[in-house]
Amino acid sequence: MPLNPLQKANYAMMRLMIRVMPSCRDISQLISAGMDRNLPLRKRLSIRLHVSMCKFCRRYEKQLHLLREGVGHYADPEVNAVEKSLSPAAKEKLEKALADEAK
């Protein structure tokens, strides 16, 4: 899909500004880093400034937080709907191991 004139202008503008600012590649890295440690104010501000102008990085940031939330559900054995349960054979094996231990 070709870009409309407005999108073209926006892209040209971003290409100009990126020469003095962190790029989307840099920002995606900073967004990830910010989820694991406290970033200095300067870096936090550069993320905020960048995402205020860039819809892709705005989505990227939001989606990484969604990913974290989704992984939280996935990690909960009561909520996770795709991992299997113990097979009868495995259950039996565990019960036997415990019984042997108790002797």
């Binding site: 899909m1 971003m14 990085c57 989505r59 989606q63 969604l66 939330e69 559900h73």
Partner: peptide, 30 residues
């Protein structure tokens, strides 16, 4: 220059407003 490519559009797409809700579903977990 390290920008998400615009042609073709290669940046993150819009996941929609209900993405968070859909993440509780089996399809997401699979």
């Amino acid at each position: 220059l390290g920008l998400w490519k615009h042609e073709p559009e290669s940046g993150p797409t819009d996941w929609g407003a209900d993405a968070a809700g859909l993440m509780q579903r089996k399809e997401f977990m699979a």
